[in-house]
Design a protein around this nucleic acid. Sequence first.
DNA 1: GCACTCATACGATAGGCGTCGTAGTACGGC
DNA 2: GCCGTACTACGACGCCTATCGTATGAGTGC
Lengths: 123, 123
Amino acid sequence: MPTDTTSPRASSGSRSLEHPARADIRLADVLHALADPVRLRIVCALAAAEGELNCADIELPVSKSTCTHHFRVLREHGVIQQLYRGTAKMNGLRRADLEALFPGLIDGVLRAAELQAGRLGQE
Amino acid sequence: MPTDTTSPRASSGSRSLEHPARADIRLADVLHALADPVRLRIVCALAAAEGELNCADIELPVSKSTCTHHFRVLREHGVIQQLYRGTAKMNGLRRADLEALFPGLIDGVLRAAELQAGRLGQE
DNA sequence: GCACTCATACGATAGGCGTCGTAGTACGGC
DNA sequence: GCCGTACTACGACGCCTATCGTATGAGTGC
């Protein structure tokens, strides 16, 4: 990054990432973000954790690069928030924003995912 | 249809279309089906109509072919049901199936779509 | 300072999807 | 029987996306 000489304090765990504002989150985008099995799994894990999770804390059947890609999709579509903390990147659901925009939607999806997992698991 | 001599009553509105069984409907597929603005519009219109709608009864900003494509996606992913009635094809939401599989999900999505429409409309 | 780890960026690839136009098929009415 | 209407099938096009491997940057600990 040759041109970035303007921010000398870019370190100390504050490499910041772009997130859409609450008002810019679109339903179709959120649904699209949730429509991938891998991402659905990520969201379920984050919801279950209730707190923040390291990227590597979620076991996924894809490579590291692909994992990064999915996290980015979720972030850019307003589903999760990410921030750096030292060497790790913590991820969390944007529950409050999503609930404000689409009340009940996320819980419905999470519940549906659980139900389906149970159904498919024991059949 | 040269080989179809087995069903003498194939007319009278019974060209039948393939629908997935309730047990074969997957959450990710449903979300994917709903993740397109055009399809979201179709689903909202069908939900508002409460009954069955002709394909052409829903105004869409796409060509006829594309329209057919979107209806097919919705049907093959288990979101709507379609059946021929004479020259027209009637469409209806598979509310009961979806509600049984993913309780509250569809209503959540529909409500979210309404809220967003209101928000975007008057801003 | 150096090595290690975490995560990213970039390039490449293959497949899917949304879009359209055109040609074709099924029904119903004249 | 013929035509108009409603929808479909098929092929094409461009874009987006999921996937990967490799190279790179940021931070931690020795």
